[in-house]
Design a protein around this nucleic acid. Sequence first.
DNA 1: CATGAAAAAGTTCACCA
DNA 2: TGGTGAACTTTTTCATG
Lengths: 146, 146
Amino acid sequence: MPEVDRIDLKIIQALKRNARISNAELAETVGTSVSSCWRRVRALEDSGVIAGYTVQLDDKQMGMGFQAIVHVQLRRHAHDDFAPFVKAMHLQDEIRACWATTGQADYHLHVVCADIDGFNRFLDEFLFRMPAVASAQTNLILRTLK
Amino acid sequence: MPEVDRIDLKIIQALKRNARISNAELAETVGTSVSSCWRRVRALEDSGVIAGYTVQLDDKQMGMGFQAIVHVQLRRHAHDDFAPFVKAMHLQDEIRACWATTGQADYHLHVVCADIDGFNRFLDEFLFRMPAVASAQTNLILRTLK
DNA sequence: CATGAAAAAGTTCACCA
DNA sequence: TGGTGAACTTTTTCATG
C-alpha cells in the first residue's frame, strides 16, 4: 500500500486544479523544496496513485450540449453478447462513463451528444441494436453541479 | 463558435491520453510542425475548448474502494436550503459528480468512499443532515467499465 | 496573413554534498 | 534532503512563402 502523507495530498489537490503547473510552482504551493517535490510526484506516478494526466474539455464549446444518464438492463443468459457490449462501451465516444450497478438497472451510462437528435440516433442506431441490451430508461441531465 | 478541424481533434485525442506529452512529440503524433501545433493548442485553450488539465487518480491505490450512484430527491419549497446544498456538493470530496436530472430523482451523484463504513458515514453524517435533502436511494457500483 | 525556423526564457531531472 | 547544472521544452520573435 503506497504511503500518501499530508504534502502528497496537497500535491494531488494542486495537480487536480492544474496538471501542467511547473514543478517549481508546485513546490512553492505545497511548501517543500523543488527536489523533494519532484521526487514525490515521481513516487506517486510510480506507485500508481497518479494513473496519468488528461485534458478537461468543454463539451458545450465542442457542440456537445446534450447529456443524459441512461439506465440499461441486459438480457438474461446473453453471455455470448456480453463481450461485444463491453467493447462497444469503450469504442462509443458519446459514452463518457459506464458502471455496472446493483438495483433495477444493470448498467448506468453517462452519455454526451450534440443534441436530442444525436441522442435519438445514439439510442436507435447504437444502444437498442446491441443484442445484449434488453431495455433502457433515460434521465436527461439539466445541469452539471460538479 | 470555435472551429475545430481534423488536426485539432487529433491533438485533443493525444492530450486525452497524456496531457503532459511534450509539444514536439505532440506535433510528431498529429503530423504538423512544432510551431503550428503549439499555436493550435494555444487557440484551443483560449477559445475554451480545452478547459484545463488534470491528474487521473487511482482510487483503489488511495484506499477508496467503494463507489455508488446515489439518487437524491430534494424537499419541495426548500429554496433557502438550496444554495448550501450546491456549496456542500462542491466541498465534499467523496462526491465526484453531481447532475441535476429529470425523472424520479432530482439529482444523481457519483460517490467514492474508502469502504461501506465510510459510505454509511457519508449518508448519516453528511447527506441526510442536509436540510434540502428529502430522500435518497443508492445503487452500488460493482464494476467500472469506463 | 499564416507558417516554420531559430533564439531567449524557463523547466525538468540526474547527480553529488 | 536540498542545491546545482546540463539537457530539454516552452514561448517569443522574426524572416519567408
